[in-house]
Amino acid sequence: MSAQFVIFGLLAVTSVATALAMIFSRNAVHGVLFMVGNFAAVALLYVLLGSPFLAAVQILVYAGAIMVLFLFVVMLMGPEPAPLWEHIPGQRPLALLFGLLLAAGLIAAVNVEELTGVPGIMSQEVLERLGQPTALAQTLFERYLLPFEVTSLLLLIGMIGAVVLAKREKHELQAERAPREGGAE
């Protein structure tokens, strides 16, 4: 019974510690690695909450794909100079103050004993009978089919956007190599 509490406590401490280490890390590569640790801890919390499918997607998409992309860009840009804040006077204390105020407000708002909301039909017994990924797929492809299709459009737009942004750089590179042809579209 209390084993779940212990596991939750360990994962909560890990996720908060890695998140804090991420925002205070001077080296961006260290920040990315702390972020991977944070995503892994949250994925294990998803397992604790009984959704192993989302945990797998979290590891695959976030820790696998997105963070590797971040790492590529960090490597591409090279090491940054050490002090990364204090451009505006008093930015650091003000940011910490506002962050703490927001945390206090959110915790006060969220830490309630009773929950309001309409309970659904997917109780733990139903989920165990169907299997959690099957039930999720049924919800996704029956009730949320149109948003799912719109999502594919969004991914296409993202892909085109990335290609367009990268292509303009190639034009600039060509312009640098051959200055006379630089103005040609």
Binding site: L102, A103, L106
Partner: peptide, 10 residues
């Protein structure tokens, strides 16, 4: 909430 506040602070 704590993780969200850390993100905002970042």
């Amino acid at each position: 909430a704590i993780l969200f506040s850390i993100g905002v602070t970042g």
